Amino acid sequence: MVHACHRSHTSGLPRLPPGLLGRAVRGGWFSNPYAGFSEDDLLVSLRRTRLRNRPGTRLLYSNFGGGLLGHVLARAAGGTGSDYPALLAERVTGPLGLTDTDCDPNRPQATGHWHDRPRPALLMPGLTAAGAVRSSARDLLRVLTALLDPETAPGPALRTALTEVQRPRLSVPRTGSRLCLIWNLRPRPGGALLHHSGGTRGFTAFAGFLPGSGTGLVALTNTAPTPLAPFVQSAYGALRELDATPSATVWTARV
């Protein structure tokens, strides 16, 4: 239940851990808002947290839940919360051959921008699983290729995981959409469209795929999200247009 609720954003946890926002405003809001929030701070915040609703009953997007899930998974595997990057490499990125994907803020990477100003590398020591993973268009396309055909993945565990993350878990009120494990699913006449997008203080990313037509698209930009999310909306529209492609295709766009 912990896994499904956190990954479907129905855990009842608030968007951010108690105390993080105040600390960021005092010490890094305009540069690196998560940098001063450690794994110990995460556990202290958890003890102070009151659930907004009973788990599994209401959709509420939560970076707190995503970060806590990574901590719990690492501990369940016999380590500590800080072992999440190693667990990710062992169980997911390594077997899938994702050589550009890890949680290392010191590896060579693009420079992000916010309000036309360059940003330092994002640091998230206490919420690593919520948004500290770095990747490339090439690696994300490999992930979409595996999602389009889970049977090609190495090992039964990964094949099961790639299938299960696409299974709808709940309906999103007033939208007609459904939520899988992290992936948003929108029904279409030719089959489901699954997508997810996100942003930090320096980057915006979109990934989506259509299992029915074997089509996927990744779009990345090194600028922070802007109001109304025109970059994400354009990427989503491009994916819908690619749905008419008669043969299996995986596309990427970088701006």
Rank of each mutant, 00 (worst) to 15 (best):
L20P: 01
V44E: 14
V44A: 14
R47I: 00
E90Y: 03
L13H: 13
G19L: 07
D100M: 12
E39K: 08
F30R: 14
L59A: 12
L51K: 00
L43P: 02
N63F: 13
L21G: 11
N32I: 01
S38Q: 08
D41W: 10
V44Q: 15
G94I: 02
T57K: 14
T99P: 00
L87D: 00
G94Y: 04
R54I: 07
A74P: 05
G56A: 11
R15L: 11
A35F: 02
A24W: 05
F37V: 04
F37Q: 01
P55S: 14
R47E: 14
L98P: 03
E39T: 13
G94C: 10
D83W: 10
G22E: 12
Y61Q: 03
T101G: 10
G67D: 07
G79I: 04
G36V: 02
R54N: 04
Y61V: 03
R58P: 01
L20S: 06
G19K: 07
D41I: 10
G65K: 07
R91N: 04
G12F: 09
P55Y: 09
T80D: 15
G66L: 15
R48G: 12
G81P: 01
N32H: 06
V44S: 11
N32C: 09
G12H: 12
G19E: 09
P17I: 12
F30P: 00
R48Y: 06
